[in-house]
């Protein structure tokens, strides 16, 4: 898979630090699955975290803390049971769902305007911050996301194009409130992507608009 659109340093840093909301973090994890280049860059930022950790002033642990931990190790606690099996919407052909989504609850495809279907992706414990799978017909415009501080869209199948170029499987589009990029699905076929916004109000707005009969194209 040749990937030409990647995540920004800033977003990778926030992912490395663990401070991205659940929805955007899910899109980032999906991109990382398919992109060795971004995985290598992430490792660099995680190494920053490691360096900062090593340099922190030690805080005193409770006197018996190590002994209690050793007792837990001796007790050989059983590993936690696996999470409940996911539900997945009906996918065309043999599209594999990204592994990053395996712990998420994935809703059924819902009509969200002409040529657009949407499935809500809920991250366990993610609260209001989730993502959506979008399935959009050839030549259709992607629904307007609204204007979030951060908007991430990972292509899973098919392709779309905007002013920055063409996005195929594995590519990620990262934009913010300053960008009006108007992505359109390529004529060759339908496109499935995973999208998330930062900010729950904006995300609600996104879903709200999608649920309306007159999605703006």
């Amino acid at each position: 898979m040749s990937i030409s659109h990647h995540l920004t340093d800033e977003t990778l840093l926030r992912y490395a630090a663990g401070t991205l909301p659940a929805g955007p973090a899910l899109v980032v994890a999906t991109h990382l699955e398919s992109c060795a280049k971004c995985r290598a860059r992430l490792l660099a930022f995680e190494a920053v975290g490691g360096a900062l950790l090593d340099a922190l002033p030690p805080e005193r642990m409770e006197p018996d803390a190590l002994a209690r931990l050793m007792a837990r190790i001796d007790a050989q606690e059983a590993p936690a049971p696996e999470t409940a099996p996911r539900r997945m919407p009906d996918f065309p052909g043999d599209i594999r769902l990204p592994a990053a989504l395996s712990a998420c609850e994935i809703g059924p495809w819902k009509w969200a305007g002409p040529g657009v279907r949407m499935s809500r992706v809920t991250v366990p414990g993610g609260g209001e911050s989730g993502a959506v799978l979008l399935r959009i017909g050839a030549g259709r415009r992607l629904p307007e996301h609204g204007h979030g501080a951060l908007e991430l869209t990972q292509v899973i199948y098919g392709s779309f194009s905007d002013i920055y170029g063409r996005y195929g499987p594995g590519d990620v589009s990262e934009t913010d409130e300053d960008v009006d990029h108007q992505p359109v699905v390529d004529a060759s076929g339908e496109c499935i992507c995973l999208a998330a916004l930062e900010g729950q109000m904006l995300f609600k707005g996104f879903l709200g608009r999608l649920a309306q009969p007159f999605v703006r194209f």
Binding site: L43, E46, A47, G49, G50, A51, L52, L53, D54
Partner: peptide, 10 residues
């Protein structure tokens, strides 16, 4: 891939 500090940080 990473040093102990980096791995433990993650």
């Amino acid at each position: 891939k990473a040093g102990a500090g980096t791995w433990i940080f993650t």
